[in-house]
């Protein structure tokens, strides 16, 4: 029995390791390429042959990386702040009230997350252009919000569902209003959920490509995704593209790793139902 258990454990370990290698291959090879000189790209294999860190210096002069970072951070932070707020309200309504049209509302919310961006991007552009929000940060942010609000709402709702109503009743007796209850009792009790929502929306905002591409015009509003993809034009050498790519995803990965304890907790507790 014990031997069998050990065998199963080894099997699991091997499988997980293979999967992790598969997961990391693209990121690792990008890392190797980013430390290689153009001429040596063909020679590099497991480890960069020349540790050419100059790529990381050159890239700043090649493209407007600072500008891309700034725009990306604005999209990511803007999206996540507003998303958390909207989702908190909506999730609270879904969790605590029975109201007419609730089913229909939930259906609509679900639908928003599966509308293909490529379907909706051009009409969104036309609407925003008409109301004067074309080429603004807020225009991109609300477009992102509209198609990504579902998951945070569903996530927070399952968090709120887990908080006993009795607590609120006690507070209500003390004369607390609904919004007061929401912010004084529910929100503090769902910190992991709020944090998870924030982080997820942050990554969503960070990774947007089509919306900023179509909804902005000014070069200062170009985010990393669009800016770096522009380098994949077959003229910019691969190692530069990879350096840019890595620089663009590293902040997101670092934030993820820092927050991952809460993230996994939050996602586990509020698993998508």
């Amino acid at each position: 029995m014990k031997k069998k258990k050990r065998l199963v454990l080894t099997g699991r370990m091997i499988f997980v390791i293979i999967w992790c290698v598969f997961t990391l291959i693209p990121i690792y090879t990008a890392f190797v390429a980013s430390l290689t000189k153009y001429e040596n790209l063909g020679k590099t294999f497991l480890w960069p042959v020349d540790m050419y860190y100059q790529n990381y210096i050159d890239i700043w002069s090649r493209v407007n990386l600072t500008g891309y970072f700034k725009a990306t951070v604005i999209y990511a932070v803007g999206t996540s702040l507003i998303n958390v707020l909207l989702a908190t309200f909506a999730a609270y309504a879904l969790s605590r009230y029975a109201f007419k049209g609730k089913t229909f509302y939930s259906f609509i919310i679900f639908i928003t997350q599966v509308i293909p961006q490529v379907v909706i991007a051009i009409p969104i552009f036309m609407t925003l252009n008409r109301i004067g929000l074309y080429d603004t940060y807020i225009g991109v942010i609300i477009a992102v919000l509209a198609t990504s609000m579902a998951f945070p709402i569903l996530l927070l709702r399952s968090f709120f569902d887990g908080i006993p109503v009795a607590l609120e009743e006690a507070a209500a007796i003390d004369g607390c209003s609904r919004v007061g209850i929401l912010f004084r009792i529910i929100v503090p009790l769902s910190t992991p959920g709020i944090a998870t929502t924030f982080a997820l929306s942050f990554f969503t905002g960070w990774g947007q490509y089509l919306y900023p591409l179509i909804l902005t015009r000014d070069p200062s509003k170009t985010p990393l995704t669009v800016g770096i993809s522009r380098m994949i034009d077959n003229q910019t050498p691969w190692e530069m593209v990879m350096t840019g790519t890595l620089l663009a995803i590293i902040p997101a990965i670092v934030i993820y790793l820092c927050a991952q304890k809460y993230l996994v907790q939050g996602l586990t507790a509020g698993s998508v139902k």
Partner: peptide
Amino acid sequence: FRSIVIIPWIVPHAFAASM
């Protein structure tokens, strides 16, 4: 391992393609 397997989720699609 648990942290590693989640990473592709936060890599924007455009970058996944180039890598």
